[in-house]
């Protein structure tokens, strides 16, 4: 690990001031589970670490007007266990429950996960189909960014170096719709997914009234499968229709070969698990 100055501000404003002062030479550390690993592997070498472990703001989970507001410093374990989240967005509680192990979720934060932007993380597909947005704050002000515009590339976001994710806003799940999160794990239970699929859907009178699908771990960012959604909405909810619509994901995924599977295998499995997710949420499983 390289040498760095370690800052432990007591307030968010103090932290934002340090980031304004040190710019791109500073890295924000929330839970630190990902950042410490990057430091240990010398993949990053910042001159300054601004640790948020003393900051007591931005950790609440509340809901109002159909929107769940999750503080950026809430831990992933907090989201998994939150009655507010479980009641209004059970898909989100399940997605966070599947992250790594309890030892990691106890420490890793919601905002840290957003900023880390690993496309194989569990929450992003669910955040995409729930229409989440990210509140990013800096000494210059605050902006609200749709989650799909935050993820830019592998471990790359459109967040600025002086910004901190202070809140995640997630609209409640549509009531009456079925949901699923499939995490395909051919190796071990605590692994990152080889392919993950989140879906929400509702069939009415034999037709697809609503369907939303997104995939993780098979492209530089989590991706929404709009091509599948558009092909199905208003159409009869039949096994053949779902099978045919699922084929389209092979055109939008862009996986890489790694120990979790070859690119062609992940492409094939993207189609298979999209179909299974659709069958589950549209009552054809």
């Amino acid at each position: 690990m390289n040498d760095f100055a370690f800052h432990a501000p007591e307030t968010l404003d103090e932290a934002l001031g340090l980031l304004a002062q040190h710019g791109a030479d500073a890295k924000v550390m929330a839970g630190g589970t990902s950042l410490t690993t990057l430091l240990k592997q010398s993949l990053i070498a910042p001159g300054h670490i601004v640790s948020l472990h003393r900051v007591r703001e931005c950790a609440a989970i509340e809901a109002s007007d159909g929107v769940i507001r999750i503080g950026g410093l809430a831990t992933q374990r907090d989201v998994e266990l939150s009655p507010v989240v479980k009641e209004r967005a059970p898909l989100l509680a399940e997605a966070y429950r599947r992250v790594a192990t309890v030892r990691i979720r106890n420490v890793a934060t919601v905002g840290g996960g957003v900023a880390q932007a690993d496309p194989a993380m569990d929450p992003p597909p669910s955040l995409l189909i729930l229409g989440a947005s990210v509140v990013a704050k800096s000494a210059r002000g605050e902006r609200v960014i749709p989650i799909g515009e935050v993820y830019a590339d592998y471990y790359e976001t459109t967040l600025e170096p002086d910004e901190i994710v202070t809140e995640l806003r997630v609209p409640a799940q549509p009531s009456g719709a079925a949901w699923t999160y499939i995490k395909y794990l051919p190796r071990t239970e605590d692994d990152y997914a080889t392919v993950s699929v989140a879906a929400i859907g509702r069939a009415e009178g034999g037709s697809v009234a609503d369907v939303r699908v997104a995939l993780g771990a098979v492209a530089p960012t989590a991706i929404r499968a709009s091509v599948v959604e558009d092909a199905l909405v208003g159409q009869p909810a039949t096994s053949d229709a779902l099978r045919e619509a699922s084929q389209a994901v092979s055109e939008i995924v862009d996986p890489t070969d790694d120990p979790r599977g070859s690119a062609w295998y992940k492409r094939d499995m993207s189609v298979v698990f999209t179909r299974r997710a659709l069958e589950q949420v549209l009552g054809l499983a």
Partner: peptide
Amino acid sequence: VGVCGACTIELDGRIAASCITL
């Protein structure tokens, strides 16, 4: 890298991986 659990400790009441904590 926080995967194996050998370094598990209790930190302020919750278990944590001490190898990926500064």
